[in-house]
Design a protein around this nucleic acid. Structure first.
Lengths: 89, 89
DNA sequence: CAGATATATACGTTTCAAGCAATATTCAAA
DNA sequence: TTTGAATATTGCTTGAAACGTATATATCTG
């Protein structure tokens, strides 16, 4: 699907997933339950976040425990700074 | 239209407008020319950026000179930090 | 005021990604 | 090796936003 980092973050539900994962790493079903989302959509959103390096996962039994990944955030941070460096006010 | 800051930045052309404005303030037609975009689309994108406080404009004769506005960027920065504070790695 | 220039808005069309339901895959435990 | 639980994938439908064209508004200049 190949999305820009901003496009990945543009979806409110993905924003909420990241906010939730900031509190603690969670499995797919836990995320789905916390956010009242269906499991398939949750998986799909997680895949988008994974491809853009906003999350990574650890296999634990039949579960995949998703964690935040700093790489995606760093990229956004870098973009922000590249613009802010030129800002007057 | 009411968009989240990330949704505003999700459109590649709006990203390019901001990058361009980081070099210097420009009028609508100048932006349209630099980026090979139609004038109406350019106006429309600028309105979206304006509503989200990524740009502001100064009236100069018949022209509107658009500038970057730190407010929009600050908001994104704030969001990033609110997540990074909880990141382990 | 008339004409010209710069910008904004309205409208119809199109495109792309989210949502949902069904199905497939993976892996563990008995 | 069968069963069940957790997760991923596929296909279809739908809605929101981008695009192009045409038109409207505003502001300068003569």
């Amino acid at each position: 699907m190949v999305m820009t980092p901003f496009k990945v973050l543009a979806e409110p539900k993905r924003e909420r997933i990241l906010k939730l994962l900031a509190t603690k790493p969670l499995s797919v079903n836990e995320i789905a339950e916390f956010l009242n989302m269906g499991q398939p959509q949750t998986s799909k959103h997680l895949k988008v976040l994974l491809d853009a390096n906003f999350v990574w996962y650890e296999v634990k039994a039949q579960n995949r425990i998703y964690h935040l990944d700093h790489q995606g955030f760093d990229e956004v941070d870098k973009w922000l700074r590249s613009i802010k460096n030129f800002m007057v006010t």
